[in-house]
Design a protein around this nucleic acid. Structure first.
Lengths: 207, 207, 207, 207
DNA sequence: CATGAATGAGCCTTCATTCAT
DNA sequence: GATGAATGAAGGCTCATTCAT
C-alpha cells in the first residue's frame, strides 16, 4: 500500500528538484529517491529523462495558454470588453503560475536554453501566447478602448512582467523580503501592472 | 604567441557553451575542446569547474553594479539630476549586458537556481543593485523630482525589464523577429522603458 | 483462436532474433515485442530466458541426432549398406538443418561458447553424434566397403563440412552469392561432400 | 609500477573473456577487472566497447589475409609453384590462428552475426580471402598443375576446414580428446587437408 | 491465461579531477 | 606551463524477473 500513484509522486519530485537544481543538474536517481520509487520506473513512465522534461513543460504551457485563450474568446464574443478581458487574462496567468510555482520557475528557466525542444516550444506555445495578447490589444483598438495600438515592445515588456516573479522568486524573497507566493503579493503586483497598462487605455476600470 | 592567452580562450568557450547548454549541461571536456586546450588546464586555471563558474558570474556582476554605481555617485554629488542619472544608469545596464550577451544570459539563468553560490550573490551584488536604484529614487524624491516615491514593486518590475531581453534573446528573436543585440532594438526598448518611468516624474526630459 | 499458439510465436520470434543478434544480444523484451505477447509470458512458458535457450537447443540437437540414428540402425540391421547409410545420414543432416536455418545457425554459434550448458550438450548430443558416425564407418570397414578406417581427423572435418553452410550462410551469400537455403545449393554441396568421402570407399555409388 | 602497458592488458583480457562468454555476454567491467584497470580506461583507449571489438577483429583479419597474400605474391612471381604456395598459404593460416586461438575463436563466432560491422568485414576481408585463394587455384590451372579448376564449393569447404578447429576447439577437446593447440594436431590436420586438396592436383608433393 | 506495474541489479558511458611527466 | 594517462564516482538507461490482478 506504500507504493501508489507513483507517477504523480515522480512528477512532484521531479518538479521540485528541477526547480532547485535545474534539469541537467538533477539525476534520475535523485528523482527516484525523492519519489521513493525505483529508478527504472521513470523510464517506464516517461520513456526518458527527456520525456519527463517534455511532458512537464508542455503540460505547463498548455494550461498557461489556455487561461489566456479563455479571455480572448470572451473578448471576441462580447463588445467593448477587450480591456477587462486583457486584465483578466493577465490575472489568470499570474494565478496560474502562482499555483504551481516550482513548475513555473523551472519551465521559464529551461526555456532560456538553446535546445531543439525549446525551439519547438517557441514556435507553438510562445508564439501562440504572443498572438493571443496581440489579439486582445487589436480588439481593444478596434473597439476604440485604447488610444494607440501598443507596439511589440509593449508586449515584450508585458511578457517579462508576467513571468518575472515566478522566474525569480528567490530574488524577490531574499532581496526584497516579499513573498511572491502570497496572495497579497499578487494583488499588489497585479495592480501595479494594471496601472502601467491602464495608461494606454481611455477609461481605466481596474477591479 | 600563437598558443598564448589560453585563459581567455577558455573563458570565451565556457561562456558560449554555458549560454547555450547551461552550466551543468556543459562538460569541461566540451570547453577544453572548444578552447583547443587540454582538459587539465581548466582545473589548473580555475581550480574547479565551479571556480570557473564563480569567476564568470562575479566578474559579470561586478561590472554590472559598477555601471550603476557611477550614476549614483553622480546623482549624489550633483543637484536635481536624479532622474537623468536613473535613466543613464538604466541605459548603462542595458548597454553593459548587450556587450556581453552570452555571459549575461547565462548569469541571469544561473541565478534562478537555489545554490549556496546564488544565495551569496543575492546578498552581495543583487542586494547592492537594489540599494543603488533605491538610492536614486530616494534622491529624486528628496529633490522633488518625483511625485511620490515608487514602492518596491516598481523596483521589481524595473529589474525584470532590465534583464528580460538578455535572458530571453531567443524568445525575442524567434517569436518577435527582433534582434536584441541590435542597437536599434536597445534604443526602442529603452525609450519604452523611459516612458514608463517618466510617468512617476514631474518633468520628463527623455534624451 | 486469434491469440492462440503464443508459445509457438515466442519460439519463432526468439529463434529469429537469436539468429541475428545472438542469445545475449537479444532481450526478452525484443522477443516479446516480436511475438506480440507480454514479457512476463516468456518467463511463464520457459521459466527463464535461459530455459528458453535450453529448450531451443536441445530440441534442435535431439532432432539432429535422430536423423543420423535412423541410418545407423538401418546400417546395423542390413548388410553391406554402411556406405549408403552414411551418405543418407549426411544428406539427412543437411536437410534437417536447411529446414530450420535460423535455429541451426544460432545453435551452432552458441555451442562455441564455454558455458556449463555447452559442456553438457557436448557430453550428450555431440558425443553421440560422433559415436553414430563412427559406428557407420566401423560397420563399413567390417563390411569391407572401405579401404582403411578413416581416423578421427576425417570425422572432425566431416563435422565441419556438415555444419559450415548453416553456421555461415551470410558468408556464403555475400561472398559467394550462393543461396545456402536453395535446394540446388544443397545438391551440389552434398555431391562435393560425397565425392570427398567416396575416396575412402571402394565402390562409389553416389545416388 | 603496477599499472603498465594497460592497453595490452585490456586487449588480452578482452580477448580471453570474449572467447569464453562472447562479446555481448561480456561486460566492460569484467574486462576492466581482469585487466586490473579502471573501467573508464577502456572507453579512453577504444572510444567504445564496440571500438574495442572492431579493433580486435580487424587486427586479426588483417594478419589473417596477410599470411595468405604472401603466398599469392610468390605464386604469381614464380613459375609452376601454385600448388606449393596454396599448401603453404593453408599452413600459414592454420599456424596464424593457432598462435592466437582465443582471438580466432571469438572472431569467427562474431562473424556469424548479422551486424553492420560483419557486413563490412565480409565485403573487405572475407571477400579478399576468397579472392586470394581463387587466384591461387586459377594460377595452378593456367600452369597446368591442376586437372580441372575446382568450383566455388571447393573454396567454401576449404574455408570451413581452415577455421573449424579454431572455432570449435572445445568440441575437439571434449568430444575427440585431441588438443587443437598442439603442434602435432596441426600437423595431422594439415596433412589430411593436403591430401584432400591433392586429389585435384596432378603431382602431389606434400612437404 | 495473460497482463502491466514494479524491482534491483547491471549495463555502457561520461563525468570532473588528479598526477606524473 | 602544459600534457595525456588514469581514476572513482556518477550519469542515464535496460536488463531479466516477479507479482498482484
Amino acid at each position: 500500500m506504500a507504493k501508489k500513484a507513483s507517477k504523480e509522486k515522480v512528477i512532484k519530485a521531479a518538479v521540485e528538484l528541477f526547480n532547485v537544481q535545474g534539469f541537467s543538474g538533477t539525476s534520475v536517481r535523485d528523482i527516484a529517491q525523492k519519489a521513493e520509487c525505483n529508478v527504472a520506473l521513470i523510464s517506464y513512465y516517461f520513456r526518458n529523462k527527456q520525456g519527463l522534461l517534455e511532458q512537464l513543460i508542455t503540460d505547463f504551457l498548455e494550461g498557461y495558454t489556455a487561461v489566456i485563450e479563455v479571455q480572448v474568446d470572451k473578448a471576441l464574443s462580447e463588445e467593448d470588453k477587450a480591456y477587462d478581458c486583457l486584465l483578466q487574462a493577465i490575472w489568470n496567468v499570474l494565478v496560474y503560475q502562482q499555483k504551481r510555482p516550482h513548475l513555473a520557475r523551472f519551465v521559464h528557466r529551461e526555456i532560456t536554453l538553446d535546445t531543439t525542444l525549446v525551439r519547438e516550444l517557441m514556435s507553438t506555445y510562445l508564439a501562440k501566447e504572443k498572438h493571443l495578447f496581440s489579439t486582445l490589444l487589436k480588439k481593444g483598438y478596434s473597439n476604440g478602448e485604447v488610444y494607440d495600438l501598443p507596439d511589440e515592445f509593449f508586449l515584450i515588456q508585458l511578457k517579462g512582467m508576467l513571468n518575472m516573479p515566478f522566474l525569480h522568486p528567490q530574488y524577490i524573497r531574499e532581496v526584497y523580503h516579499l513573498m511572491p507566493h502570497d496572495s497579497t503579493f499578487l494583488d499588489k503586483y497585479f495592480s501595479q501592472l494594471a496601472q502601467w497598462i491602464g495608461v494606454h487605455f481611455k477609461e481605466k476600470t481596474v477591479s
